[in-house]
Amino acid sequence: MKEWLSYRPGDFLMFSQRVYERLFVLHNEALWPLPLLALALGAALLLALAFPRPGRVRAALGLLGLAWAFVAWAFLWQRYAPINWGIRYVVPLFALQALLLALGLWRGGLKLPARWDLPRGLGVALVAYAVFLHPLTALLHGRGLAGAEVVGLAPDPLAIATLGVAAMARPASRGWALLAIPALWCLASAATLYLLDSPAAWPPLLAVLVALAARLLPRDSPPASRNSGSAKQNVC
């Protein structure tokens, strides 16, 4: 016990801020022009969630699932794990999240609300933030847009976008299941960035709080007297 008390949180950090930031610069360089395509796909994801139809929702979930698998391999395994051995244990969790999203597709098991309510508004706002604003946090680091974290290619915006989907997903049990891994990732990332003295520690932390609040808020559910047919129209 005495020994554990002698550790500071910073003692567990094994790389410098500069090395961490350069990961994204090198990642974008290696994948160029994929970051542009990823941004376009991110915009399509946002549109699909803002104007949902069953087909669009399935496509959005499929895209997110693919992105989790891609980020697990291309970013976590190839780039991040060499400087942070703990990441090896995170890769299976990312694969599991890809699987959960795929299961959500299966027989339309996961639905998104078609009508606007506060949880849906917060969920869509999180996705919009992840796609369009989060890449700009690279400017807070002072590394320029070459080191931007783009949704679908980097873990933080991907996790934040997925939190957005999980915040509004129905039924609640599936929403919570979809929320757990991105929330854990965002908390770990916020802690890492905080220890690296980065002002960009806040967004992932706030994203978790927003997603939790959205999930806990009362939903605009159909009145009990409505028949199951009209309840179905409430979701996609």
Binding site: L13, M14, F15, S16, R18, V19, R22, L23, L26, R79, P82, I83
Partner: peptide
Amino acid sequence: ITFNVGDDPAL
């Protein structure tokens, strides 16, 4: 920490 730079050619 100082030499943990992955395969970043510049570092």
